[in-house]
Design a protein around this nucleic acid. Structure first.
Lengths: 367, 367
DNA sequence: CGCTTGAGTGAGAACGTTCTCAATCGCTGA
DNA sequence: TCAGCGATTGAGAACGTTCTCACTCAAGCG
């Protein structure tokens, strides 16, 4: 555990001695608090410069009770949604003098709990969490009870005493579905991505009761999809709703299955950009053209969405701003504002490109 | 600065009192060091459980000299290359019990220097840096001299006493160029991305002297491109080498310019995936087809590369492994292995898809 | 001149751990 | 029985800061 001759950096005491003052005065000069004469300050700063002094944040944090560190828990930093949101958090934090400790939870509840414990022991001043599961309410509440404020990002946990930042998933999905309906589509498939727990509920006739899954992103979006259909007097068909996994290949397989149905969909709504990519891949393999044969709308405006053929129509979330707002809410609370939890719903934007168009006349009725 | 009634967590002293032992014994029971009787251990653990005790890592780090924290400095976490590499670093770190403190440098030298200072004050145990500029040698050397080991990721800084992890950029670019040459292309454009400092050197006749830029990623790749051409007896044409910016629109503009040349390229090598995306976008706008009219090869195997039309041929880097290896090298050093700096060059892989094909017969000579 | 005031200073406590060291305890072997 | 030994224990130092408090000193005021 030793080995590398870790050079110990000079402490404030050494600097003080070198400058011919007490450690208290040296501390004041270097830390910018209390009052110090110009002469002392100069002597201290010069000594510090000479010795290559670097303050020890750990010792400072012990006293002040602030680590100037924010913990960020996300399922997977490789997901562009989270890396962009993290960028927003980090920019706000950095601007106000905070640093970011990042942990991937891999959608693993036990990893998340463990990380929560570690970050508590590290005495982070606050936490931005995109929780894996609503089931983690107690672990999160423990953290809050320990005095560490928490902001929930993208996902909500019912009954938790924390700020939340996200979009109105139900309204956004409803809007996207309505746009497909307005183009004449009547048979619209929904690719939700996951997961085992969701599948049985999504399989119910007419998607009844999906709003009970409202706390999850997928549940809320599925409810919006159903709302739009029902308002148009269309009975949602469970076989058009897929929950076969979040990976690209899962979406490709689902697409292949959907298009093999007796009454196949003429449009697909994919709840995430990776899923949309899988749809496109499957369409190409099947020799179906988009949007001529099948219309497609995705979620999240990935940087490739505009550049591919056809450019993809998407529901765009203000991802960076979501992160930035989470950072702001958290730091406001860290810096002392004590208030009731707030819930920010930022507006989404439908970006119309070329992947969705009017339903084509069914082959059987064309001349 | 106060306000929120930050509940102070119980210290080890309180736990010890509750358990009826000394703080030393409580520390041993909770920290798992020294020797404690079963009876004492149980009493302490029960007391800790009852009081909701959480160790204070700061105090521990003060004593042990280890923060179990790795600093990671990247230009931009939104860049998929860095978010994937970070994933590799974080996974290795986590597995060995370390956490990751992340800072975006935004390719800004002064931000990078400042971050280096902050992370030093936080006493991180080691640092993975993708340095903005080779000019930061001194600031990095200062960190190393202070006893904090550094591993350079993706980019190198000549004369720095640090491990490096990356690919052989020159060989990878040469290989990609050779493949285009083998397909019959003789007029191959190179999209380098940046930047102002590079442009004059890339503009020299025959790209003479680009290998002097060997320390930069772009410079090394440009050298590989030139090597391949020269070996085939082809004089590199500076007007086919673009360094007009790293954004997608920059690449689109460059593509438009290149295809407007009197003797336009029949193939394009883009040194980064975002640039390739810009090329595709421009081609679509110009009504040129890929690969029928123009062949394209990119760098980095983005998740969309396989799913778009046409699937993009790329030079794939082992990005995750790059990060993981950086993490391993760093932790090995942190945990005591004192050795001379090593330089890991991981192999790249050319992924042949459909965006590059044989040069078409020039229009003038076709029947 | 005596009193107040405020800036400047230093001694030492405090933060919450781990480490050092000496003391005690219970056994073992002679 | 007793020296010896290892396991167990507690007191107190140490880590490097900031904070508290009391003290000095010079200036201002009546």
């Amino acid at each position: 555990m030793s080995g590398s001759a870790r050079r110990s950096m000079p402490s404030i005491e050494v600097v003080a001695k070198e400058a011919g003052v007490s450690t208290a005065t040296a501390g004041r000069a270097l830390g910018g608090y209390g009052s110090v004469s110009g002469k002392s300050r100069e002597a201290v700063l010069a000594a510090a410069e000479r010795l290559g002094y670097r303050a020890n944040s750990l010792a400072r944090s012990m006293i002040t009770g602030l680590t100037h560190t924010l913990g960020v828990l996300v399922p997977d930093i490789e997901n562009p949604f989270f890396s962009r949101a993290l960028r927003g958090i980090a920019d706000v934090a950095h601007e106000r003098g905070w640093e970011v400790l990042l942990v991937n939870t891999d959608e693993d509840l036990s990893l998340e709990r463990k990380a929560l414990g570690v970050l508590t022991e590290r005495r982070v001043d606050g936490l931005v969490v995109a929780p894996t599961d609503t089931a983690d309410r107690d672990a999160l509440q423990d953290v809050i009870d320990a005095g560490i404020p928490v902001v929930l990002l993208d996902r909500r946990v019912p009954g938790l005493d924390a700020d939340t930042v996200g979009i109105d998933n139900r309204a956004a999905a409803k809007d996207a579905t309505e746009r497909l309906l307005a183009l004449g589509h009547r048979s619209i498939a929904l690719l939700t991505g996951g997961d085992e727990k969701l599948r049985p509920r999504l399989a119910r006739p007419g998607l009844r009761g999906v709003e009970r899954l409202g706390a999850t992103t997928v549940g809320a979006r599925a409810a919006g999809y159903r709302d739009a259909l029902v308002e148009q007097g269309i009975e949602p068909r469970p076989e058009l709703v897929s929950a076969e996994g979040f990976r690209r290949e899962d979406a490709a397989a689902a697409t292949t299955r959907l298009l093999g149905l007796p009454d196949p969909p003429t449009a697909i709504l994919a709840l995430d950009s990776l899923l949309a990519l899988g749809v496109l891949q499957a369409l190409r393999r099947l020799g179906r053209r988009c949007p001529a044969d099948v219309s497609l709308v995705g979620f999240d405006d990935a940087d490739w969405a505009e550049a591919i053929s056809p450019p993809l129509s998407v529901v765009a979330q203000p991802v960076y701003e979501l992160g930035a707002e989470a950072g702001r809410l958290l730091l406001d609370r860290v810096q002392g504002t004590d208030r009731r939890p707030v819930h920010r719903r930022l507006p989404t934007r439908f970006v119309e490109r070329e992947s969705a168009r009017s339903v084509r006349t069914p082959a059987g009725t064309s001349p």
